[in-house]
């Protein structure tokens, strides 16, 4: 991975630098106007957040059943990156809502569930930081619980009456708004590359920490 890190970082930086040009040239949505352009960063940040949550959840399942420390390291790295992207989604969403709905926040099913998933993973990180020895297994269970919430977040905007636009508009974007689909999927790709970059950097940090812990143990012996 280290061999690919620099080319990946350059590619991601170039893609993110070009993204505002594509977003500015994308067509305006007829009812929301300019504010709809937040969508190009808001939705990809949730894509990245959910990817992190799934990596964390699956790595936690493997850790609970196999007890491999490297899967636990993957889980904690993915959880932290997921929380960062979730925070981006939770801040950019209300900025869009203020203009579109007239309020910053609505306690409807979709928004509340998204906030709950974010809080579960903040809880996971707090547990890892302050839970002491043995908190790895407890936090792995928390991660699985958090991952189980993600499908509900996705479908909540489609099956319940919420003020949030249905998430089903995203797969249909190529048909309903072809001019927006290109820039949107470009931003999704850029964010997924960014996620890969941050995740690999964070995993490297966890690996080095584990090596340091081993060195401390060696010194004590």
């Amino acid at each position: 991975m280290r061999r690919f890190f620099t080319p990946l970082a350059v590619l991601t930086a170039l893609m993110l630098a070009y993204a505002p040009v594509l977003i500015a040239n994308a067509p305006f949505e007829s009812t929301m106007g300019l504010i709809q352009k937040i969508f190009y960063f808001h939705v990809p940040s949730w894509f990245a957040m959910f990817t992190g949550v799934f990596i964390c959840g699956i790595a936690s399942v493997v850790y609970l059943f196999k007890g491999r420390p490297q899967t636990d390291r993957l889980a904690v790295a993915a959880a932290e990156v997921a929380v960062v992207f979730g925070l981006i989604g939770l801040v950019t969403g209300p900025l869009w809502a203020r203009k579109s709905w007239g309020v910053w926040w609505q306690w409807d099913a979709h928004l509340t569930m998204a906030l709950i998933v974010e809080l579960i993973f903040v809880g996971y990180l707090l547990l890892r930081a302050y839970g002491g020895p043995g908190s790895e297994k407890l936090s792995a269970a928390v991660a699985i619980f958090g991952m189980a919430n993600v499908p509900f977040v996705y479908v909540s905007a489609n099956i319940w009456r919420t003020v949030h636009p249905p998430t089903s508009v995203v797969p249909e974007l190529g048909r309903t708004a072809p001019g927006m689909a290109g820039p949107f999927w470009y931003c999704v790709l850029a964010f997924m590359l960014l996620f890969t970059l941050l995740f690999s950097a964070r995993t490297h940090l966890e690996r080095r920490r584990a090596e340091l812990d081993e060195l401390y143990l060696d010194e004590e012996e």
Binding site: L34, L87, I88, V91, L95, L205
Partner: peptide
């Protein structure tokens, strides 16, 4: 006006990512 909200959103994304990258670098 939509522009201040849009600019705030993009600025927040950049600042959050830069701060996070800096914290990883510092911890490493």
């Amino acid at each position: 006006p939509a522009a201040p909200l849009l600019i705030s959103a993009y600025a927040f994304v950049w600042v959050a990512l830069m701060v996070y990258l800096w914290t990883i670098w510092r911890r490493l």
